[in-house]
Design a protein around this nucleic acid. Structure first.
Lengths: 222, 222
DNA sequence: ACCTGAACACCGTTCAAGT
DNA sequence: ACCTGAACACCGTTCAAGT
């Protein structure tokens, strides 16, 4: 019996659903996608060259979701940058695997290159050299990537612990505290408690990091 | 026939050798390690609880390699931070999988917590609050993690292309240039050429990023 | 044009069994 | 105490064969 035609879009949608449930790109497999769509795993390869091309398509899909407001030239360049990264953050945090997707793919699409171009243009207009502009945007991107890897990792850890599959991971925070106490790592301990209590409102934390970086950049212009 | 006892250290050493050759943590498998040591794959599990614990041990091993100079209190706090991250960078860049190892593990060892404690202490002494200090160190760490993921990714890409296994990856930079040209992404194009020509001397690039961040932090103190 | 089952070469991990 | 082979439940990918 022949199935109704499956489209590439359907595969992407199914992949997003699985990713939303599992949380990590590693847990996304062609076999799971095929299962979800009730097709054979081999069918995937008629629609996509390989897993990597699927990831490319998914990454582009996410970038297209970002709502960039029309270029407001009355705004300070710092606020323009802030606005865009705030929008990126909001999109990424809604699907925490987004950053991992970006890191595992190459920005070889119109949407992704357009976003990079836009950011660099803002810095060029502000008076930075192309080298400075490129370095600055890359640096903020790296910062964001690292932050999200951290967030995703912590989410995954909590996920695994709550499924009580992993008792080893569950006792690691306690072990950290134990080691820190034994060695009188007081500076660490003072921030550790704080870190475990706050949790949420990470957008503010993210924007604080961005602000520090932007303040440093502004110094560079003077 | 019974083999001579294999030690945990031998497993770690073999794992590092494989990682040095392959470049990515994903390409490190228990079977490859076992093969290298001429033991059965199951033997691994007598010495380590699982793959994760091996990674934990390897990550700690790398941090212990970092040469931290004795705390020089005559130095500015900015220079103390610079010195340490420069040392970390040097250690990481010699084994580009190092950063990935850190991101995939939890700092639940004396060496790793000691390093974090040391960094936070410097900022506390400089007059920052515990929250500020913790956020600042985390941010620099995220920046470094993102940077190294980028470096490792690019290395792996070149590696795969040079083995001409992956013709798809090989033409991506050209595709990027094509898209950018078609859409008049001139700001991007101006930095793209530059980016592809320079290559090396990434330590300076890294330190430039750190410097911008430190300049922003200094502003926060005033 | 679109889909399949079977196969290939891999994973991490477990476990009864060996010495 | 230390190691083994065989098995389990997974991967990504290929390919001849079907409709």
């Amino acid at each position: 019996m022949v199935k109704q035609s499956i489209s590439a879009e359907q595969i992407i949608t199914a992949a997003f659903e699985i990713l939303q449930a599992s949380g990590t790109v590693d847990a996304l497999s062609i076999r799971k996608i095929a299962n979800q769509l009730d097709i054979g795993a081999a069918t995937f390869y008629w629609h996509f060259e390989n897993k990597q091309t699927l990831l490319q398509a998914m990454a582009d899909n996410i970038i297209q979701q970002i709502e960039i407001e029309p270029c407001n030239t009355t705004l300070e360049w710092t606020d323009q940058i802030r606005q865009i990264f705030s929008a990126i953050y909001t999109t990424y945090i809604a699907q925490p695997y987004a950053a991992e997707l970006m890191m595992r793919t190459v920005p070889a699409t119109k949407a992704r290159l357009g976003l990079i171009n836009h950011l660099i243009q803002i810095l060029l207009d502000a008076g930075f050299t192309p080298e400075q502009a490129s370095l600055a945007i890359e640096s903020i991107d790296h910062f964001m990537s690292g932050l999200f890897t951290d967030i995703t990792g912590e989410l995954e850890m909590k996920h695994r612990v709550s499924q009580h599959k992993d008792t080893y991971l569950a006792q690691l925070p306690l072990k950290m505290q134990q080691i820190a106490t034994d060695n009188h790592y007081n500076a660490f301990l003072r921030t550790f408690e704080h870190h475990r209590h706050q949790q949420q409102r990470s957008l503010e934390k993210f924007m604080l990091g961005i602000d520090i970086f932007l303040a440093g950049l502004q110094q560079q212009l003077a």
